[in-house]
C-alpha cells in the first residue's frame, strides 16, 4: 500500500516541514513498501505542487486546487483526506498547527487512532513518540488498517529537493471539491520577520522572563544578527506580553532542534525543556546559578544578562 503526505504550505511556498514528513514516509516505505504521494490542497497552488514534485522519493503529487481548500480549514480538508485515504495505508503530515488541526479529524472520520508527533519509525506499524513533555518516550504499535500520523519535523532529516532530477514526480489533479458550510476564514495576523523560521533555524537565541521587557529583546537581536539565528521565547515572556505567541518554544509551543540554542533569562521549566533539549549544543545565561536550565546545558554562564549580552554581541 502507499503513503500519502499532506504538504505544508504558506504564502504560496512549500513549507520546509514537508520534506521532513516525506523522510518519515520513506522510513515507513523501507519496511512496508509502497509509493509516496504528496497532497497539495489549497487555492492557486500550482507552483507549490511543482516544488513538491522535486522532493526525493515522491512518486506522485496530487493537487486539490479550489477555493474551499484555501487556508486549509480543517472541515473541508479533513473530509477530502478521508475520501482519499482509502487508497493508502498511511497518511502523514508535519506536526504543525495545520497538521495537528486536520489529521485527528481525518482519523475520526475513518474510525482509526492517530499517532501524534512521532520521532522515529521502528517499522511500518510501530513508532516512537514523546509523552509527558518528552520526559518519557513511548513505543506504540497500531493495528488499524489506516495509520494517521503527525511527524515531529526536527526528528527526521529532510529529503533533498532535486530540481534538476529528470525522474521527478508526476502531478495529478484531484477533482473532488467538497462543500463547507461549517467554517469560514476571516483573517490572519502573521508575524513578519527576515530571520530564519524558528523550527528550522540552525541557531536559536531565546529570551525568558528575565529579559524584563519587550524592548530588551533588542539585546538578543544584535546577537541573532551576528549568528544568523532565529529568536524564541519562553511562555513566561510571551505571557508577560514581551513578544508574540508564535515565538514560544516548548511542550505547547514550537519544537526546535538547532545546532546551537542560547537560553537567556530562562529558568528551565520542564515545559520549556521539552521544546529545545534536542538541540546539539545548549548555552544558558542566567544570574541564578541554581537555575534548573544549567542541568541540561553544555555551557552555562552565570551572570546578569544586561552585562553579558552587550559584551557577547561585541565580541562575536
Amino acid at each position: 500500500m502507499s503513503i500519502l503526505v499532506l504538504a505544508e504550505h504558506h504564502d504560496g511556498k512549500l513549507g520546509s516541514a514537508t520534506a521532513h514528513a516525506v523522510a518519515a514516509a520513506q522510513a515507513i516505505a523501507q519496511d512496508g513498501g509502497g509509493d509516496i504521494d504528496v497532497l497539495v490542497a489549497g487555492e492557486n497552488v500550482g507552483t507549490i505542487a511543482e516544488a513538491a514534485a522535486t522532493l526525493d522519493g515522491v512518486a506522485k503529487v496530487r493537487v486539490a486546487d479550489a477555493a474551499v481548500y484555501a487556508h486549509q480549514l480543517a472541515e473541508p480538508l479533513g473530509e477530502l483526506l478521508a475520501e482519499l485515504a482509502g487508497d493508502y495505508s498511511h497518511v502523514l503530515a508535519a506536526a504543525s498547527t495545520t497538521g495537528k488541526n486536520v489529521l485527528p479529524r481525518l482519523a475520526a472520520l475513518r474510525n482509526v487512532a492517530q499517532l501524534s508527533e512521532i520521532i522515529s519509525v521502528e517499522s511500518a506499524d510501530t513508532f516512537k513518540r514523546p509523552i509527558y513533555a518528552g520526559n518519557a518516550i513511548a513505543t506504540v504499535q497500531s493495528d488499524d488498517a489506516l495509520k494517521v500520523i503527525t511527524v515531529r519535523a526536527t526528528a527526521f532529516d529532510a529529503v533533498a529537493g532535486s530540481l534538476q532530477d529528470q525522474g521527478s514526480a508526476s502531478i495529478e489533479a484531484v477533482d473532488r471539491v467538497v462543500d463547507n458550510a461549517l467554517s469560514s476564514f476571516i483573517g490572519e495576523e502573521l508575524a513578519q520577520s527576515d530571520r530564519p523560521e524558528l523550527s528550522a533555524a540552525k541557531v536559536v537565541v531565546s529570551g525568558g522572563r528575565g529579559m524584563g521587557s519587550g524592548e530588551n529583546f533588542t539585546l538578543l537581536e544584535g546577537i541573532a544578527d551576528k549568528l544568523g539565528a532565529a529568536i524564541g521565547a519562553s511562555r513566561a515572556a510571551v505571557d508577560a506580553g514581551f513578544v508574540p505567541n508564535d515565538m514560544q518554544v516548548g511542550q505547547t509551543g514550537k519544537i526546535v532542534a538547532p545546532e546551537l540554542y542560547i537560553a537567556v533569562g530562562i529558568s528551565g521549566a520542564i515545559q520549556h525543556l521539552a521544546g529545545m533539549k534536542d538541540a546539539k549544543v545548549i548555552v544558558a545565561i542566567n544570574k541564578d546559578e541554581e537555575a534548573p536550565i544549567f542541568q541540561v546545558v553544555d555551557y552555562g554562564l552565570v551572570g546578569d544578562l544586561f552585562e553579558i549580552l552587550p559584551e557577547l554581541e561585541q565580541k562575536l
Binding site: 504558506h10 480549514l73 504543525s96 495545520t98 476564514f185 476571516i186 490572519e188 502573521l190 505567541n245 508564535d246
Partner: peptide
Amino acid sequence: TREIDGGLQTVELV
C-alpha cells in the same frame, strides 16, 4: 482566534 505557527488566524464557525 487561533494560535497558529505563523501568528494568529481568525475563523467563523456556525
